[in-house]
Amino acid sequence: MSTTTTVPATTTVPAAAEAVRPYALSHLDALESEAVHIFREVAGEFERPVVLFSGGKDSIVMLHLALKAFAPAAVPFSLLHVDTGHNFPEVLDYRDRTVKKHGLRLHVASVQEYIDRGVLKERSDGTRNPLQTLPLTEKIQAERFDAVFGGGRRDEEKARAKERVFSLRDEFSQWDPRRQRPELWNLYNGRHAPGEHVRVFPLSNWTELDVWQYIAREGIDLPEIYFAHERDVFQRAGMWLTAGDWGGPKDGETVERRLVRYRTVGDMSCTGAVDSDATTLEAVITEIAASRLTERGATRADDKMSEAAMEDRKREGYF
């Protein structure tokens, strides 16, 4: 404040430095406490919740939080994997190991099955990401899931920045960003009609770096493709894609062996690897902190399609 006039009586003097506050939670503890609160709210309010589990780092952190939230008892939810048929084998292995280790029940919605039945058609670009919405929605309806946990984070993408923690979906799983319920304090409104369900995002307030730092702090095991390894890849749309039966390389694309790792894990056809020599969690965290690109900007072809690609997919019922 100014030295030239009398300071108004109600004005506070800015603190020079934060006093020692033994009771302030660290940011990771605060985020963890919030996420656990969200899991328990769902357990208390819903009949048939399910956790979307892809074997990606965000869903792995979700499961870890759920295990902590209900210890010493078991997690009162089952898991749901939308299998695109283009999965990384390392990630499927991880999924099956995890399900077995924790005695969980796994539901699988298979994109391949929908293609085989002729309900869905393979896209010309080979990407199966947008094809996941129908199998997901029909599985939710068939199993009558009323709460579906997703690992989406608001820092990932600008359409997600406006997503609620509890996000109501109609029987078609559609999201209408203009008709969202206001969400105040930690009072989450999960009321829904029969046939509707609520998507729940316990990691809403986490950033990519928070997720990695939490993985390091908690010593959480991850699929090995998150760490640097040699892999046969080819370049498409500026990204390194894994060569394989799913549809690459095509004419003019050449395969080379490179030292890479995956920063996100999704469908093989649209998830790019990044050049990296980070073989440990510490090295990965250092690399992310130094990155000039967001994780989706660096690794996801599907979000490069248009400015509103994520919003459009979300409206249709995507994760």
Binding site: A161, K162, N205
Partner: peptide, 24 residues
């Protein structure tokens, strides 16, 4: 435009909802 991500927001040049931003 860093925060106004929805189609309706960009079309109308307005912010229609609370946006959450993260920095450190």
């Amino acid at each position: 435009l860093l925060t106004d991500g929805l189609r309706a927001e960009r079309e109308q040049g307005i912010t229609i909802d609370v946006a959450y931003r993260y920095f450190a």
